[in-house]
Simulated scan of single mutants.
Amino acid sequence: MNKIDPTLYLQSQQTSRAPSNDLGKDEFLKILMTQLQNQDPTNPMDDRDFIAQMSQFSTLEQTMNMAKSIDDLVQSQLISPVIQYSHMIGKEISYQAIDKETGQKLDVEKGNVIAVSQKEGWAILELDNGEKVYADAVLQVSDPKSNSNKS
């Protein structure tokens, strides 16, 4: 007959724990249950105190959920270059034209942005003259309506 050594189980258990600054639902409920179990029976916790603690916890939880939602929204907005540069549609831009074969700089050209797309994480402005320009190559942005009033 084989006998199981109980010390093996104890030796395999984690002996230290890492402290955490986060107080989640489970931790709060454990604290609350401990508080209720150890209260003085001759002077129990007032219902109002209990309700106030639950209300504070609920408010904190909702605030944390809202903060996470806002962070997620901000991250999703930062990821999409199309959204970042969509305000450029309808604007006139000036850009340094480059010869596609030689890579040499040509004259500064202008065009109106008609669409925004993305390629490999980079925003590409599609112009009414058929050109596609990386957004970081733009030298100037102007409103074509204000330019037509100058004539």
Rank of each mutant, 00 (worst) to 15 (best):
Q37S: 14
D22Q: 11
F50L: 09
F50W: 04
K25A: 09
D128G: 10
D26Q: 13
I31T: 13
L139M: 09
V82H: 02
R17H: 13
G103I: 00
I79A: 13
L32G: 00
I31L: 15
L106F: 10
L23Q: 08
A137Q: 10
G111S: 04
Q62H: 14
S80W: 04
H87C: 05
Q96P: 06
G103M: 01
A97H: 00
A137G: 09
K105L: 03
M54E: 01
D46T: 10
F57L: 05
L10V: 05
D26S: 12
D40P: 11
S58P: 12
L36W: 05
P81D: 02
L125E: 00
T15M: 15
I98V: 08
P81Q: 00
N149I: 10
V133P: 00
S20K: 07
D136S: 14
M64W: 07
G130K: 06
Q39F: 07
L29Q: 13
Q96E: 08
N129K: 05
R17P: 11
K25V: 05
A52H: 03
P81T: 00
F28R: 07
T63I: 09
E27H: 15
L139H: 04
Q77W: 10
F28D: 05
M54A: 03
D99H: 08
E101H: 11
A123S: 03
L73E: 10
L8N: 12
K30I: 02
D143F: 10
Q62C: 06
D5A: 03
S142N: 11
E92Y: 04
I83E: 08
Q118F: 09
D143G: 10
R17N: 14
N65T: 03
I79D: 14
Q77F: 14
G130T: 03
Q35C: 11
K145W: 07
D107I: 07
L139N: 02
I51T: 12
M33P: 04
Q118I: 01
L60Q: 09
G90W: 06
Q14R: 12
S16G: 13
M66D: 11
E126F: 04
E131D: 05
P81V: 01
M45L: 06
D22A: 06
V74Q: 14
L32A: 03
A97K: 00
D107H: 04
H87E: 03
A18M: 14
P144A: 01
D136V: 13
T42F: 14
S69K: 10
